[in-house]
Amino acid sequence: MSNPISGFGLGLRSSHYHDFLLAPRGVDWLEIISENYLVDGGKPWHFLERIRRDYPMVMHGVSLSIGGTDPLDQTYLRQLKALQQRLEPAWLSDHLCWTGTDSLNLHDLLPLPYTEATLRHVVPRIAAVQDLLGRPLVLENVSSYVAYRADEMSEWEFVRELIHRSGCEWLLDVNNVYVSGINHGFDPRSYIEAIPAAAVRQIHLAGHETHPDYLIDTHDQPICPAVWALYGETLRRLGPTPTMIERDDHIPPLAELIAELDLAREQSQAIFAECRHAA
């Protein structure tokens, strides 16, 4: 793999293009939304190419629809592959979800029913994508607000089995585990404990909105204390893991996000100093 990633990253958003050209301290790598660069030129590519010179990058997609029942979109996959060749990301991720059916795209990350039939459907699709891209696909757990009557297993049992059968890797979104845990009444720690540590490439942290009956994954505010605590437990289990903060709405000045990222770095340093001390 071209650029091994370590440390603490942020999502590249256009409002921070000019800030990143100055290569500020405190950001080790960047994650881009692949779809934002499936265009021919102009400002997106102008800034991406310049910023890429200073930062290792990973690609994160939102419309692979790996769990969808329409055939995989070959045009989209070819575009992703071309982007991968041009950008040489350390890895490429999308979500364990479906985004639409009958050729529509709802532009959302919709949960799958956790069944044996779904596993049999998704595993060969992951294999097809991995063959085409020539590397393991990294998948991320999504937040969800519904649970299917058809479910035969918990989400974490499903994810474990999916990783085992497909050889895919994992992007563990700690906020999404927490949000879904509260929404569906499971203990987020059982989820984290069930994910095979060796498969986890990356961690996402983000903020969510609190409603009377639901938490909603909005990426529009700072990370809440409960998610910080869960992040600590996750690190204790996984060891040092590349971590990034996602912010997609109410995007603050870059310095504010870097300060929040410093909290993740400090927490990680404290935990592993403690571990070394104990060892």
């Binding site: 969808g68 029942t69 059916t101 009958d102 709802l106 919709l110 799958l112 069944t115």
Partner: peptide
């Protein structure tokens, strides 16, 4: 498939 029908129903509901 069952999964395909389920997705159609969820999508229609949305």
């Amino acid at each position: 498939t069952t999964l395909g029908r389920l997705q159609q129903r969820f999508q229609s509901a949305i």
